[in-house]
Design a protein around this nucleic acid. Sequence first.
DNA 1: AGTGTAAGCGGACTTTCCCCCGCTTAATAT
DNA 2: ATATTAAGCGGGGGAAAGTCCGCTTACACT
Lengths: 206, 206
Amino acid sequence: MDRPVLPLLGSPRAARADAVRNRRQLLATAREMLAEQGVARLTMDALAERAGLGKGTVYRRFGTRAGIFQALIEDDEHAFQERVLSGPPPLGPGAPALDRLIAYGRARAAFLIEHREIVRAAIDGRRPVPAGTEMRLSQMHIRMLLTQIPLDGADLDILAVQLTAALEAPLLLYLSAADFTDDALHTQERTARGWQDLVQRVCRRP
Amino acid sequence: MDRPVLPLLGSPRAARADAVRNRRQLLATAREMLAEQGVARLTMDALAERAGLGKGTVYRRFGTRAGIFQALIEDDEHAFQERVLSGPPPLGPGAPALDRLIAYGRARAAFLIEHREIVRAAIDGRRPVPAGTEMRLSQMHIRMLLTQIPLDGADLDILAVQLTAALEAPLLLYLSAADFTDDALHTQERTARGWQDLVQRVCRRP
DNA sequence: AGTGTAAGCGGACTTTCCCCCGCTTAATAT
DNA sequence: ATATTAAGCGGGGGAAAGTCCGCTTACACT
């Protein structure tokens, strides 16, 4: 019997059990090594060996070294998105869109500072401002909120990209600089205030 | 190009002739290889060999692989900054600050698209080099223009960082995506319009 | 259960980045 | 001119990223 030529959308194939297991194992091991030895010691070879797997498997699962850190962040990001999508206002639904936008910036700044070690490692090897998938979620959320605010004649797609970058830029700049330790909270707060000021300016009517 | 070192405050020493010569030689060779063989073939070893110099010299001059691309951009950037600082209005001095800001965004977008190949290579770099120098100039200029616009109670440093990132984000996002070729001008124009809209919103009075 | 097959796995191999450090040389002082 | 010295130079080498491809195995369909 001929097998279906095109699998229907969303069912290309179930992920194999060993693949899922190995992915989990690698992420867990990566977190251990990160906590114990810091970012620098987390090499692909060391990770593979400590996880008891082959190097090829690490690459199959994450593609690049930066991919590991992105995966780690996305992992944590799930809980964060949960709060954003269905938590209490003003972050979650129920508050005016502008308030949610401001709250989102504040929460996002806190999130990035809280995970600064991993974030730093993730941007260390890749794109400066737009940093992969994590940013895509931010962008989508911001765009969604923007649709609920009257902004005559604005290009929402561009505006969402601009605002997402504007939100993260001060933090990424800070994290890119070497030796951040003490004034993290100060940067976080200043970023949050700057964000609030920016979106209020952008969204107010003339 | 001469090194952009500030000779003002107690210059410790003049740059050595051979150092300057080698730097020029390396940049020229890098441009050749870039044009002939594309980005991927431009390795530190290959560059050194073709330039007839040692690997150590390449590393000494540019620090990292990404540093080469940054140096190439800065080279071109010099002419650009010339126009910005002392060219005709509205880009150069003489026009209202808001108009200059808008003109700057448009010119910057054109510049980045024009040099898209190199910019892309610089983005792909592995590690942050001395600093994102290219961006710093943008930031300083934008901040300078902002001081000439009444913006009550804004944190100018943060705002400059935010706007710089907002300006470049759409372009960098586009350049990060693989296979850009045809719709470059479209992206450029859309970015320029988006920038104009953004700064007008930010700078208008309530 | 048996079987076909696509996906996953592993680890040796290649590439290339970046560091190191003894030797050389240009700029300056005597 | 000669001596001094700090900066520059070179290329070997370690280390880690990323690739390749034959072997293995989980899953789906009889």
